[in-house]
Write a protein that binds this DNA or RNA. Sequence first.
DNA 1: CTGAAAGCGCTAACAT
DNA 2: ATGTTAGCGCTTTCAG
Lengths: 368, 368
Amino acid sequence: MDPGLAHNGQMSRGGVTRKPTVYDVAARAGVSIATVSFTFRQPARVKEPTRLAVEAAAKELGYIPSASARGLAGGRTGALGLLTRAYRPTDPVLGDSAGSAEDDPNADCRLFPLYFDEIGRGVEEECWRRGYAVMLAGATNSNSEAVLTDIAGRVDGLVILSGAVSDHELERIAERLRVVVVSDPDLAGSVPHVAVDNAGGMRAVVEHLVEAHRLRRMAFVGAVDDSDRRERYATFRSTLHDAGLPAPDRPIAITVDPRARPRDPIDRDALPEAFVCENDEVALGVMDALRDLGVNVPGEVAVTGFDGIVAGRLATPRLTTARQPLTRMGAEAVSLLFDRIEHPQEPTVARYFPARLVVRECCGCPAA
Amino acid sequence: MDPGLAHNGQMSRGGVTRKPTVYDVAARAGVSIATVSFTFRQPARVKEPTRLAVEAAAKELGYIPSASARGLAGGRTGALGLLTRAYRPTDPVLGDSAGSAEDDPNADCRLFPLYFDEIGRGVEEECWRRGYAVMLAGATNSNSEAVLTDIAGRVDGLVILSGAVSDHELERIAERLRVVVVSDPDLAGSVPHVAVDNAGGMRAVVEHLVEAHRLRRMAFVGAVDDSDRRERYATFRSTLHDAGLPAPDRPIAITVDPRARPRDPIDRDALPEAFVCENDEVALGVMDALRDLGVNVPGEVAVTGFDGIVAGRLATPRLTTARQPLTRMGAEAVSLLFDRIEHPQEPTVARYFPARLVVRECCGCPAA
DNA sequence: CTGAAAGCGCTAACAT
DNA sequence: ATGTTAGCGCTTTCAG
């Protein structure tokens, strides 16, 4: 056919510039579309002058290869996905209630960055290092299935942060797509994952409270509803037990608000010596509640967290916590994904990272 | 043909489960592939029982629509791109030298989140709200063109953060793809963008120094090499001039290291009364340098920044700065992009946001 | 309301 | 070393 109208009759027609394709580049360079493709994907297969001609033509035309076409033809997209839970509900029913955070530069730091933002950074860096693009999706409770399916169709592999989707959906998707989960040992054995040593971190926190501060009566604050939290709670109890100290029968319940405050009212007159919290967000909520009650931290009661998010460093007094190597964990998740892509038959793996005790003022230690 | 081997002879063959396609779903539901497509894209066009049958078949098969195929057929990808500069070079030649930051939880806060992380968050949230996926790409100096082309082929529109690519590359891509730039008024008029009111923010900072602290001799620290910085420097000078005060002939040069320290040596014996820095990162670098020299901030000299990143809030003393509404700016960039997608013929727009003075200890104000 | 069929732009055999 | 060609999985007229 007339090369000027090749394939879709664009460019030359009218004033409207349609996106140039391999056909246009091929026509312009006087070669076939295969040669154009080779020029970009396997330059070694093309003779120097031909390659230069194609590159020149592509440049002149402003040619941008279509990732959709490449993905379809090649069977892979060249992108990895990162599925997190959205910061706040985007459900139109719930609306956007936290819109004013921007007005208070300090308030913003409470919600961003959270631990999964730091994991995300590790994921991004490792993907870029390997020449992959990163596709981001954020799920809310109401749309997680649709979001999951959508992103699954866009990528060669998926890093899923714990809590973004239900275990059921997760297992379902894991059958169809290479997946690595960050921070949920619940599915250990069935889905590859990277996780933190919850037991080691929690033990370090409690032992610090016991040994450095001689604290004895401690309460655990948090929802014990997934394996990470269960592990932390269990270790909290066992560490206390090993030290010959009493452990409370049950944890103090919390709400699910990002700036969580304890749901069980705190009794001003029956305070423990320490509130050991499941994570930093909860700990910050507890500190708020205590401040409202006029309770001095760490004077009257110590507070500890878990994760090591930025907001804990920002709090007054600064939060003592067990820090996860979040960025490194994100990067490792990506590595695991690539291992799986290259060796699909290998058994499911898990990688654990240590949590490091970070001593700050909230436990009663002096300010640095 | 035999529907059992439809299209690519998968599923039924061997033990290997190939990805189910519309053909498989159609065969299973006893309908045509068009009906499968309609079921998901235009449910209203399909009779209830048919729709349910298709949905059931899809669920049983674990069908995941291929975004590549959809993109190719539909002419749009359903994803928006966000192009930033990578945190650290991923160039193999330069290597990865900052790898130990993870070991110091505080050091990490110096590099993350930076201002573009907060913009990114706004971009993500707005995209998700509109049902779009976000594609992330990070460019280094050495690979920006390849990264740009790659991501451009993957998305329907692109948010580009200032500094991620050269103006030349930017203009080139803007001809082929809907683009919105964040923070670079250099291309005002030719490319849609959102930016901050540099003049207003800088004036507020300098006037605070002049009026609240009676400071007179000030130095500006920063590389004056893009329009944002030029604006800030120009306003620094004009504000001083308007106040009848002397302005230095030239800014103090800095290095490009993320923890920038002034390249011009600071003269311990000829300090100005204030170092007004182009942004927070530079200001933190200056504070480090002053600490090394044994200079007290703000006792001997005041220091101010610009942007309002988290690390400035974390510094000791805490950094006085002009805060940009970064998250909101990111969201607005996405809105602009959608406006452009819906009304391609509209003229190029620009949106400016105010920068708010955030007074903290570095200027000499008492701690809150 | 549903089916048939024509591409979307590219890759990768297979030919030459 | 380069050209020809057959799909990749889906959307979307156009018929029926």
